[in-house]
Design a protein around this nucleic acid. Sequence first.
RNA 1: GCGCGAGUGGCGGAAUUGGCAGACGCGCUGGUCUCAGAAGCCAGUGAGGUAACACUCUUGGAGGUUCAAGUCCUCUCUCGCGCACCA
Length: 992
Amino acid sequence: MAYPFGEIEKKWQKHWADNKTFRAENKSVKPKYYALDMFPYPSGAGLHVGHPLGYIASDIVSRYKRLKGFNVLHPMGYDSFGLPAEQYAIQTGQHPEKTTKDNIARYREQMDKIGFSFDWEREVRTSDPNYYKWTQWIFIKLFNSWYNHETDKAESINTLVQKLESGKVGKLEKKWDELNEKEKSDVLMEYRLAYLSEAWVNWCPQLGTVLANEEVKDGVSERGGYPVERKLMPQWSLRITAYANRLLNNLDNIDWSESIKEAQRNWIGKSEGASLTFNVDNEKQSYIPVFSTRPDTIFGATFLVLAPEHPLATKICSSEKKNEVDAYIEKVKIRSERDRMADVKNVTGVDTGAFCIHPFTKNRIPIWLGDYVLAGYGTGAVMAVPAHDSRDHAFAKHFDLEIKQVVSAPEGWDIQREAWDAKEGKCINSDFLNGLDVKDSIKRAIQEIEKRGLGFGRTQFRLRDAIFGRQRYWGEPIPVYYKDGIPHVMEENELPLVLPEVDKYLPTEDGEPPLARAKNWKHQGKYEYEKTTMPGWAGSSWYYLRYMDPQNKNEFAGKDALNYWKDVDLYIGGAEHATGHLLYMRFWTKFLFDLGLIPVIEPAKKLINQGMIQGMSAKIFIGGINSSGVSMSNNWMGPSLNNSDYPRQITFNDVQRFISSADVYPYKVPTGIEPFSVFERNSPIEFVDEEKLNIDLFIESQFGNEYSDSVFILKEGYYFKGGYYNDNGVLTPEKTRPPFLVKREVEKMSKSKYNVVTPDDICTNFGADTLRLYEMFLGPLEQSKPWNTNGISGVFGFLNKFWRLAHPNPPKGRENELKVLSNGEDLGGAFFVSEDEPTKPELKILHKTIKKIQQDIDNYSFNTSVSAFMICTNELTELKCNKRAILEPLVILLSSFAPHIAEELWYKLGNEKSITFATFPQYNEALMADDSYSYPISFNGKMRFNLELSLSLTPAEIEKEVLANEQSKKFLEGKQPKKVIVVPKRIVNIVM
RNA sequence: GCGCGAGUGGCGGAAUUGGCAGACGCGCUGGUCUCAGAAGCCAGUGAGGUAACACUCUUGGAGGUUCAAGUCCUCUCUCGCGCACCA
């Protein structure tokens, strides 16, 4: 019989909730510890087994830190604005708020079953007006701030206005005071950290909306397949680029995984070089600034390339090239930026017919347009040095442009064939740079450029400002209204700007966002509000602060709370947020710090990315209707590929589709229906046992219903409309049907792949403690792994074994000592612990385990902790140890991992307060010490035998003992050892 | 292409950072209990080899450093993830 986990878990979950056991206090003499999980988006599929992986780890740490005397903040909430609820709303008309609430209720129910020690009084939801009021408030702060590069921090926009008034900043055409309101607004927009500007977006005219990059595939919208073009549109953006340097430099001071830091470094993409200007050889005196990290190669610049979107492109081109240039720009426009980046191999471009003057040589060099130059990076123009940049080289080769070498390459390098990109070599053909090393010549070139007033040294970032507006309904309204065409933010005391009701969640007929449907939704009844909403990452960029003081009505969080909790000590979540959420959160933290609103510049000291738990998808192969909608029946040759054998029971008209078992695909699928009509589809895994699909259940289900008319092709014979036919078309008794197999494949676990496994079944069948231990036992936290339940019985067995330590069969003659408590009669025996003094071996086991568990938790190595518990339990079982002095401390150790069983045993041991308030036991090295050690004795590095020796021996004595040993003599074969290595408490190695 | 990470039994994974490779668990084999099964308990389980020992081989591959290498160095292969015309 298993221990009564069901009863125990329910009982203690209720106890913890009723007693608010895990409530964190904002004032305490204890040191603080803040353990945070990335909060989930509450999707309709519910929590799957991958979610709790990180939550369990942070819960173990939280419970451990409480035992270690910390005041622990361990909260949970929901990132509850987002697209899926809105899509569902569009399809069904159900308000996203309702969907979200239902999903949250389900998440909560699932989490409660796992026994997390969250302080639920601190729950936050980003879609709650009491929460997003402060998200909007931060937006207003961003709008009212600018980045002062002199002080290197954000400041109130008022300090900028002062500087503008005194003329210290900016080059205004008129004096500040002489500007009208619109002009002033436009000037300030150039500086505000939240600003409105024209930005390039993926615009889909048919859908009337902007699409995110990932929603565009092959130049058309993923949904509907409508064309998408690049378009300049007014957009709200956040000036994250102002923080690029600090976001980069501060990475060195936080304990985050190297891969995340590296991803952020790449994303920020700092590069140093020079900006220099080329004058166009025309009457208009146009000039083109370019950015280069290789100003040392300036003498190798043989042409200029502009991005097709470059504003000068159409202005400078010669009249005879005008048509060609316009055609090219039009062609490029309909491709998304992503497509352009993906399509690296094809060189495209066009000659503008215009020329510019090389600033040093004064040569005339041609100006081209090329789509390998990105409008959004640098100045949108490059000086092409084909000899030393392979992209320029490819372009030059394609259009037969001059390639001029200016850096020495290795012997035999053919510069006409391949570019020499490396920053190595000496400058040649380069006037004043000749003979200099590349590294020195970069500095020298910048000096010269600055001296001659051609440009200046400059640092460029790949990071771009974050587009902040979304043409969506289910998000925070941006607290902005328009008065005489000028955007104004609302007053702080007018917040929150509550999301208005709309009749439909779609864009309007004229292509305005859904919020344009809101009736009478105007600021002070007069002024139009901004119609876009904030992106998903807005609310999550600061939520860790709100947890510190979630009920606060007057501030986003109170000063005392902020100063007490400061930052997150341990943050656990997925690595997929490397360049999104985690970067934005760091950005907002630095901004709030600059304004003096919070005391920290980084949100989280330590970050762990838990690995993804993948799903085991079940793929089926469906053939039938081809892409043009023509039934494939005419090509169908029958399962045996022999038309004359074709069974009469099936007429072609009945058959919609043919589904192949994985062990026959593609062999029994007639060649005529390949390849265009056979496709893979995921079957929901609940109809699959190992590899076998239960066809009957499958067809009856909502998912499989559409295949009720299909032929299921088996290795031998086939299945059709409830009957099994052999290859001769003879209806055959059910029993002989061969299995229909699916192809199992490891994929990301997601609702759309029908491979989601929820934790609920495990909780029901084995209990939450087993789930918690098992998820930890699977392997290192950071590692990704497919979910399987193969090993779960081992973990469950361990908990039962542990339970039995305190529920042994009572020894003869001492039955009267039995302590029978409430539900005592369950296992082999009733609850019974001995009050005897522990023996030395028992103490050794205990203290060894305390040390191991403590070290493992400190290293976040939870899988090895579980092993340690198992070893300890096995050893104590061997000794038949049921002593209080051993079990009581062990129960405390176990309580972070398996809190329910620990809490129950703690209670049975006679403790009245929750084990949460116990103290983590201290290990004593002295009790673990052995007086002897079994030395492995090796000869020439090969281990031959073990020898038990006292640890008090000196190395010299050990050597003597070993050499005197009978077995050693055998391996020495009479030879004299050359050398004997003795490492005390490790090894002895004899070199012959 | 660039960056990061990883390759250890049939499987998930250990290995105090250079010191007995394969802990712990699954699976498998045999035994015990049972009318039978499940659960539990006991024993075995890297490969080769042997009646059993002995012995030999073994951490993706090839070299190297060392008394000693899964661990350090060089080269190389494979896989996973991230970024990807960033001038």
